[in-house]
Design a protein around this nucleic acid. Sequence first.
DNA 1: TTTGGGATGGGTATCGTTATCCATCGCGGA
DNA 2: TCCGCGATGGATAACGATACCCATCCCAAA
Lengths: 346, 346
Amino acid sequence: MVTRDGRRRVTISDVASHAQVSTTAVSKVLRNAYGVSEAMRAKVQAAIDELGYRPHAAARAMRGRTFTIGVVLPHIRNPFFADILDGLDEQIAGAGYQAIIVQGGTMDPDSEGRAIDALVDRQVDGIFVVAPVLARSRLEETARSTPTVVLGRHDRSAVYDSVLDDDEVGAELAVEHLIALGHRRIAHTSQKDSGPSRSVAWLHTIRARTYERVMAEHGLAEHVAVVATSYTEEGGYQATRELLARTPRPTAIFAGSDQAAYGALAAIHEAGLAVPGDVSVAGYDNARVTALAHISLTSVDQDGAIMGKTAGRLLLERIIEGRTSAVRFSVTPTLVTRRSTAPPPA
Amino acid sequence: MVTRDGRRRVTISDVASHAQVSTTAVSKVLRNAYGVSEAMRAKVQAAIDELGYRPHAAARAMRGRTFTIGVVLPHIRNPFFADILDGLDEQIAGAGYQAIIVQGGTMDPDSEGRAIDALVDRQVDGIFVVAPVLARSRLEETARSTPTVVLGRHDRSAVYDSVLDDDEVGAELAVEHLIALGHRRIAHTSQKDSGPSRSVAWLHTIRARTYERVMAEHGLAEHVAVVATSYTEEGGYQATRELLARTPRPTAIFAGSDQAAYGALAAIHEAGLAVPGDVSVAGYDNARVTALAHISLTSVDQDGAIMGKTAGRLLLERIIEGRTSAVRFSVTPTLVTRRSTAPPPA
DNA sequence: TTTGGGATGGGTATCGTTATCCATCGCGGA
DNA sequence: TCCGCGATGGATAACGATACCCATCCCAAA
């Protein structure tokens, strides 16, 4: 490969001739393959270091591994995804793997599908899909040919691994907390369903249904109020504006995510109301920054770093050890109470 | 390529035999190359659609283009980066290019270098590096073989393109604004220099120096107070804690970035002080969410989407049209005044 | 009718690496 | 001395696509 400045990239042949061995020998050293003497290994390694050789991942892709994990995130605006990614990186970096991220778009199955295709075309060794809205059959199609871990979906699959938190427990914690504080008019901001069918596989569906169930269990069915926008600041803002316009307005908002909760805070402030004096707000995710934010948010904590790390481990198991049975890893969330929730105004 | 479920991926040969033409012909159609009749194009396209063929990017990488732009972000925690990326995506998607993101780490030249290497090894057609701390020589080495656009560095290069905002103007706007409000004890949160040498190429250096200059111009040199941590929530929080502990404490904080400003808000709140009653806070970047946040932040606006879009255009010019001369694109920032700044307490 | 040349389609070497063979060497046991 | 076998290193055929070059074909001009 000749680069535009006329210099060639250092290839395995360069290393081979420099060390006066065959390219096969070099390849064996690189792959830690069987049939290399200690002397050979040392000689080749010296040549590699001297020439600054790095394997060409794109060439490797033609026959072997790329040592690349592809990550599909809906977008990169959510710090909780960053927590997840930190966990993943920590796990796979040691094994020499590199994560590459593509944006899948929010609530758009088509663009999500294209993102996955882009990774498959680039021959990644494993795919990590975060909170997809894609049909399960589509995910399984990919998973059949590339090791796949899906985060945040509740349907069971025999071909991909799942990492998730128990959203039913989490939502229950949040709603019970608000009820215990004395709230009755508790509203929920959810996410619009994409496509025609509502799936119980989606975490936002479970959070919303659990909210409804817990409300009903406490005789508050008449106060159920759900506005479905999206789990983003903008979504939380829009949903909360709509909720605050109702009469009587809710005294508490259980936002589907921390990002949505931030939007809710903005809308409440804009309406001239105080948190938690007039309206309490609880979020979900408890990304690391949630504790820092200057209005400290009550949130359902799920450990993103652990989830990301587990996803990495599961992928490496499939890639390196060849596991094919599906694994499901679930974490139990807890509630972290901060200053955004308080008893309702008298 | 046989996948684990035993099904082969559809290759160019499959398309060729299905359409009863040569692989060369298919390749020509794919690349829009010269020498294809209309009939041939239609026939091949039909076969492509029928078989659901997608070119194997990894195989393409061996001889041609990968239609991939590699993006190096310090991390994905900053929503301003998301704005930039949206602009980039908008520009390159139309040309059939896909962006892949890798994290370069904050203030760590080594890990930044590894991130760039990872992209080069994967044979991306162009590289977009956001706010690197790497030595310029290292960036230029890469840029000599792969089209490169660097965002947020002020040194001039003959081999890569630069996209930046005028940080001197921006910092001036923020500090002048605070001074005009009547503040004298204005502090600044900056970013730690990585490595031994302080470079005027880094935007945080320019913002800090401009802050010092403007302070001096108004006879406020004695009140200059800079704490260098990092342009993150955590960094802004730590820096502000330290600043608030001083006697007398500052009445205004010019944070080096919006993220740092959020951290500052947290620290101020934690100290039992009010914004802007006791302390004013101004940020830098004005990411889209800054307007939404429930305490609306005064910030220096630089249009991230435009910058990302421009970066995409510059890369495509180099990749497709073969431009080799270096271009420098600079936007002039403006100040957006919101509710986080006010006159100092009497 | 011949010729020249543009338009079109295809053969094939090649990119860098891996994995499957195959060849050689040295050594212990018969 | 000869045989067999484990250990080691290498030759080589892929992987999927591209791009250079060449072979036709057809038509217009001479």
